[in-house]
Amino acid sequence: MSDGAERTGTEGLVGIVLVSHSAAVATSVAELARGLAGGGTTAPVAAAGGTEDGGLGTSSELISAAAASVDRGAGVAVLMDLGSAVLTVKALLAEGGELPANTVLVDAPFVEGAVAATVTASAGADLAAVRSAAAEAYAYRKE
């Protein structure tokens, strides 16, 4: 068990990775999702935004590091903002060995999906339920 899991009580929870072309966007959405998950234990959430040099884009290395940082053995759900972020995650999954075992790409709206995934994972749900909750965010109406 990692030291982080012992300190935070997140052992056995699904981890969430938020991939954006912007570090600021990824970090802000992660902060929002954690805040809306409520009190108590919150699932591990990591932002993987931008490039290593702080520019706009996506980074395989940042995504892999974020996934490793939230892996507590229950799986990792990865949500992305735009098309090339999706392609980068798909490439990492296809390569194998770059992401923790039981890592899945989640087709969901970025903000609403991140909140739904984090709330559901924080409640102790399994990876399939977390993925489903995030995907259901497509049905949220704002009218």
Rank of each mutant, 00 (worst) to 15 (best):
I63Y: 07
A121E: 09
A66I: 05
S69G: 12
T41P: 09
A68C: 00
A139C: 01
L99P: 02
G15D: 03
A30I: 07
A33N: 08
L87V: 14
K142D: 12
D3P: 01
A139F: 12
D3V: 09
V25S: 08
P100N: 08
V19C: 06
L99C: 08
A26I: 09
L36N: 02
V89H: 08
V19M: 06
R131I: 00
D107T: 12
E112Y: 02
A67Y: 03
A68F: 00
A114M: 09
S132N: 03
G75A: 08
K142F: 15
P44Q: 09
L93A: 12
S69A: 15
A108M: 03
L32V: 14
G50V: 10
S20E: 05
T42R: 15
G57V: 11
G54H: 06
V70L: 13
A30H: 04
A125R: 08
G113H: 05
V104D: 12
A30S: 12
A135M: 07
M1A: 14
A135N: 09
G39W: 00
E95S: 10
H21D: 11
A23G: 07
E95Q: 13
A48T: 04
R131H: 03
G4H: 13
S69Q: 13
S28H: 09
T120F: 03
T118P: 10
L32T: 12
T58P: 00
L87A: 13
G83D: 01
P100Q: 06
E6L: 14
R72P: 07
A133D: 07
L93H: 06
V86L: 13
A23E: 14
A116Y: 02
A85M: 10
A30E: 08
D53Q: 11
K142V: 15
T8F: 04
E11T: 12
V29P: 04
M80E: 03
E6I: 12
T118R: 11
D126V: 01
D53N: 11
A46D: 07
E11K: 15
A94L: 14
A135V: 00
R131P: 00
A67W: 02
L105Q: 08
G55Y: 11
G38D: 11
E95H: 06
L79Q: 03
A123N: 04
G113M: 03
M80F: 14
G57Y: 09
T118W: 07
E136H: 11
L105C: 07
A117T: 06
L92S: 06
L105F: 15
A121I: 02
V86A: 14
L93P: 09
A125S: 14
A137P: 04
G57A: 07
G39E: 14
L18K: 10
V104T: 14
Y138T: 02
A48I: 05
A85Q: 12
R131F: 00
A139W: 07
I63C: 05
V78I: 15
T42A: 14
